[in-house]
Structure formats: structure tokens, C-alpha cells
Amino acid sequence: MSVTALKSTLRRSVEDHLDRAAQSYLGDKALARIDFAGPPGEPALSGPDSVSWRIFKNPVTLFIGGVAAVILELAEPRVRTGVWENTSFCADPVGRLKRTGLAAMVTVYGARSAAAQMIARVNAMHARIAGTTPAGVPFRADDPELLTWVQATAAYGFLEAYSAYAAPLSDAERDRYYAEGQAAAALYGAAGAPRSLAEQKALFARMTPQLEASDIVFEFLKIMKRAEAFPQPAQLAQHSLVRAAVDITPAPAREVLGLGPAYGLRPFEGRIVRRMGRRADRLILRSGPAAVSCRRLGLSEGYLYRRRETL
């Protein structure tokens, strides 16, 4: 076999593995129910040249960013109570994370009509959730303040995971990313979702005094390190991916939660995670939402990978 043929075979093998890992993380059955290929030509809430489309094609940083977002969600006592006591998160955290990842994919890549329908279902579910925190504070899941926090933490997690472990993003690109998310935020009812990097920082500064330490955060991290979110051999690196999520959690929040340096990445792990993130960002996942949605718009499945390096 020639060197060229060997490289081609290796590339297909790695690509197929990451494709399976991506579908495993999102949930094969759930992914199959979403038609990212239709309606043909219908645009998404953001366009294929957006920062969002570039970021969400990466299954490695999507997982890391999702974990980081949940850490921040669980730090807010009202959100924590709503998530841990009124959803399947406690019993099936991986399943819930997969559904969250799939919802993000539909929001970013799905046709506008499909995204609007899915978001309406999510909003209807939120409208049925209400309760009281252990400290006696009442809450509703459809409270615009809480919706804004969830929207902002998810946006932050996915953005910063991609920038840290796949391809660095400038502040201007961060501004574009937050601005692109406004259409989705409005549909979700997150009226205060940040429109720029400066607004994201201001929101986090306002919310930090409301964050609280909780054993639930540590329980969540333990579960995510050992849960079967990915197939082997990617599962071997899952412990490091969870540590990577802790690393991008803002320092003030980590301090409140008691997530010291021991919970973050060790130097050798950082190199592994960045290598995984960069590799995942170069390989076309042909059955994934990004490639399929490009085809829906009449673009090549490699449109988002135009700067792909040779393996």
C-alpha cells in the first residue's frame, strides 16, 4: 500500500470513529428522528458562514462545553433544584446531556421551522416546572432570568471549549457569536441573553454572587467521568474531557464551587485534549448535522472544513 493510500485509509478510519462518537454523544435514535436535510433550501436561524456553524461541528468541544455549561447551571440554586429534582438529570445525566446537545444542534443547524417547533416544545416543558429551593426560594423554570442564565452558560461553554481546545477565537468572533444567538434566545424566552462578549462578562459578574457551592456539582462530575458518553476508545479520554470543562469554567465560579486546581487539567492531559479537539475539527462527519445541513442548503458537505489540514 502506498503512503498516500495508507493516509487515506487512516483518515477514513479516524473519521468513522469520530462520526460514531458524535452520534453516540448525541444519541443515535434521537439523531435519526431529526431531519437536518429538510426542507431543502430552508435556512437555519444563523447562516453557514456564522461562528456558530463553525463551532458546533466539533463533537469533542461540544461535550466539553456542555459539561462546563452544566457546572455553571448547577451553581445557581434555583436552576440546580429545577434540573436535579424535576428532570431526568439525576437518574440519567448522560441522556439529558445528549438531549441538550441535540437541541443545540437543531437550534444551530436545523431549518428555522424545525428549530421553532422544537423550541416551542422545550418552552412548554419549562412552563410545567416550578418548585422551591432547599433554602425556601420559589422558582419557575420559565423565569426569564433563569432562562437567560441557562442560555448564557450554554453559549459560553460551547464557545470557550472550541476556542481553548480546537481553534482560538478572537474577541471580535466572540462578539459575532453572541450576536448570532439572539434569534434563538428570543424564541427560548431568554430576554437578557448577552449580545456581545462585554455583555456576557457583565452578566456573569452580576450572577456570581448568587452562585452557591453544592455537593451535587461534585456528584455530577463523578458521574460524567465514568458514564458511557462515548464508545471505546474515546471513552478512555472522557476523564480528561471533564477536567477540560472545569478548566474553562470562570475562575470566580470555580472558587465559589470549590473546584481547585486538582479538578482541572494536568499538563499532559491538556495536550491530549487539544490534539483531540483539533483532529475532530478537521474531519468531516458525513452523517452529522453540520454536513447534512450544508447539503440541505446546496453546499458541499465539506463547506465548514475548507481550511482542513492534511492528516
Rank of each mutant, 00 (worst) to 15 (best):
R286N: 13
A229Q: 02
S300V: 10
L283S: 00
L187F: 04
R243V: 00
I284A: 07
G101P: 06
G260A: 12
A179R: 01
M207I: 10
A237K: 01
A130N: 13
D142Y: 08
L259I: 06
K29Q: 14
M118L: 15
L304T: 03
F220L: 06
C90D: 08
L297T: 02
L259T: 05
E145F: 04
A91W: 11
L304I: 00
A253P: 01
Y263W: 15
R296L: 02
A69I: 04
W149S: 04
T107I: 09
R112S: 11
A167N: 15
A91F: 11
W53M: 00
R54T: 11
Q238A: 10
S24A: 15
S8G: 14
T153V: 03
P250Q: 06
G260N: 13
P59N: 03
R176S: 07
N58S: 08
Q235E: 13
P209M: 05
L299R: 15
A155R: 03
N58L: 06
A253V: 15
R206V: 02
L18E: 00
L203A: 10
F230A: 02
M125V: 12
P138D: 12
I284D: 05
V217R: 02
A213M: 10
G258K: 12
R274V: 10
Y263V: 02
L62W: 13
G298I: 09
